[in-house]
Structure formats: C-alpha cells, structure tokens
Design a protein around this nucleic acid. Sequence first.
DNA 1: GTCTATAGAAAGATAGAC
DNA 2: GTCTATCTTTCTATAGAC
Lengths: 189, 189
Amino acid sequence: MAWKKEQKEQTRQRILESAADLFMLKGFEHVGINEIMTNAKLTRGAFYAHFSSKAELYAESIVTSALAMKDFLNPLHPSAPPFNSLISHYLSSSHMNGTSMRCPLAFLVSDITQQDAQVKAAYTKVFKGFTLYLKQRLEKQDDVEGGNAHSQSLLYAATMIGSLSLARALDDEALALDLLNACQHALES
Amino acid sequence: MAWKKEQKEQTRQRILESAADLFMLKGFEHVGINEIMTNAKLTRGAFYAHFSSKAELYAESIVTSALAMKDFLNPLHPSAPPFNSLISHYLSSSHMNGTSMRCPLAFLVSDITQQDAQVKAAYTKVFKGFTLYLKQRLEKQDDVEGGNAHSQSLLYAATMIGSLSLARALDDEALALDLLNACQHALES
DNA sequence: GTCTATAGAAAGATAGAC
DNA sequence: GTCTATCTTTCTATAGAC
C-alpha cells in the first residue's frame, strides 16, 4: 500500500505548488481555494483531504516559494555564483515582475502582518534562513569583519527586500529601476 | 449655504481619518466599509454620499496617513529635528507597533501591488514626496556630494521602509529590534 | 445626507455519494 | 480521495423612506 501514500503526497505537492504560484502573484486575500484547486486540476471539495485550512496552506506555500528561490539563487552547480551576482539577480527587473524568481519575503511582507501565528512563524523561519545565508556569504568576503557579519546580513536583507517590494508597488517603472540600481550599487562591494 | 458645504466636508474628513486609522492597522482587505463608518459614528448607507468606492477611499487614506506622518516627523517647530533623530524615530519600536506614527509606505507596501491604478498612483506620489524630503535633508549634510543625493535618498528609503515593514512581519521581537538597530546604525552618519 | 433594508456576489468550509 | 451540492457568513454597493 506504499504507492497509495506516495500518490497522495504527489497530489498534495501539486496543490502546494499551485498555491505557491498564485499566492506570490496575488497575495493571500485575492486567491481562492477554488482557484488553487482548479489550477492543480482538482475541484474545491478535495482540498480539505490535504490541508486543514487556507491559512495552513499559505504558511506551507511560503516555505515552498523560499525553497524555489534558493534553488534559483544557489544552484547545486559546482561553483556558487559570486556575491555580486546574487545581489544583481535579486534586484533585477525580472524578479520585480515575478518572471524569474519570487521571494516571499519581499512579495508578501506587509501581507504577513495581518495573518495568524502559523503564517508569521513560517515567514520568520524563512527570514532567518535568508539572513543566515547572507551572513555566510558575507563572511567569505574579505571586507567584512567577523563580529559585524550578523548586523551586516540584517542590513543587506532589509535593503534588498525593501527595495524589491517597493519597486513592485510603484507605478513609475523608471523610478522603480532607479531604486533597484541605487540599492544594487550600494550593496555591491 | 456655505456652512452646509463645510459640514459635509467635515463629515468626509471624519470618514477619511477613521479609514486611515483602520487601513494602516489592518490593511485593505481586513477592513469593511461598515467598520469604517461605525468608527466614524455613521452607518453604512451614508458612505457613498462621500466616496464612490472603497478603493477611492483607500487611495485618499494613504495620502492622509502620509500627511499625519509628516506632521509627526517634521513639526512646524522653529528647529527641525536633526537627521539622525528622524532615522531613529522612523526605526523605533513605537513605529513598528503603530503607536507613534504609521508610515503607509511601510505598513502597506506589498498590499499596494494588488490594488488598482488609483491606489498605486497615490502610493507612488507619497513615495516621491518621501524621497524628496530625504534628499533635501541629505543635501544639508556635509557627507553627501550633490550628484548622489538622489540615489542616496532612494537607498535610505529602501532600507528604512524595508526594515520597518520586515520588523512588523516577524514574530520574533528580539530579531525585529536587532534588524531596526542594525539599519539605524548603518544609516546614521 | 443619513438612515434601514436588501440585492447580489464571492468565498471558506462541510456533507454525502461514489 | 475526489466529486457535486450546499450551508453559512461576509462584503460591496444600491434603493428608497425621511
């Protein structure tokens, strides 16, 4: 009977990926369970066999989206991309419009403030993972003294996430690109 | 009949301030017209005598909240507060939890991405005002060469707004305060 | 202009057949 | 486990009396 369990897991994963896509593009409130399930080639009624609520699915989707971003930023290729390349990918126009990657930390930041505890916990977990990753990358650079790497990683995260989320909110594309460029040049060493 | 017009304007202003408060604290989707009107000591039905839609009210509320913040940050007192004081007020824990001021740029940033054109236009207008203000303040500092003041103001805005909105989303208060402090120290000259 | 009442639509969650 | 059907609630927006 092991194959049955695996079949269910695959369906669950399909729902999760459908939800992650939609939530990142439209936020929590503008996506319905009906839409998520249709996008996963299922119907409404099957949803609660996999998740207990929309909020639980949202929390898991945030982690799923973060893992997708990690794969994009830090592929398992033999050579990790240089730090400046990480910054420029994160602050690119393709990230701004969501065509390359979709960082949940930036795409959902003020949305999270309105959500329940499990969602905030998932978001905080992803944020800690992101800043730890930045810290490790910064420690490999020669221009950062060890003791300040934690503070530096928080500063980098705030500037990266802040500029990207702002750029997405503005209706003036030239200004949005100015903003991304100004932050990119400031963060590149 | 001038007094009648003034009476209506006062009522409209009361709705606007009720809405600004609620929208900043709970976001667009989690506030209903009923709640806004009750908070303004009126009932649902009177709303559409003042605004044509919830979205229109939202757009105006963003500007109203920005003006309230401006009064808080830049009072008309004879001496303007020093720049470092501006930064530390903006990145304070009382701003994080919304008890002192409520910057719509930070409180609503990812919410705006999902809204219609008039809302994005209002948000962008406020952002331009904010960065212009920062630019003027930076130009008075002696450590910024004139040509870079625009880029510098964008960088400051991204880091301030990014760290504040992030701090509000995290469920780990110690980390949130670390984040605000790291950004404050980096931005203070 | 403000009120009560309600239209009309959408969405989260559940029930029961297969 | 997935389906169709539905319960229940909530919300924007409108109608009509005063």
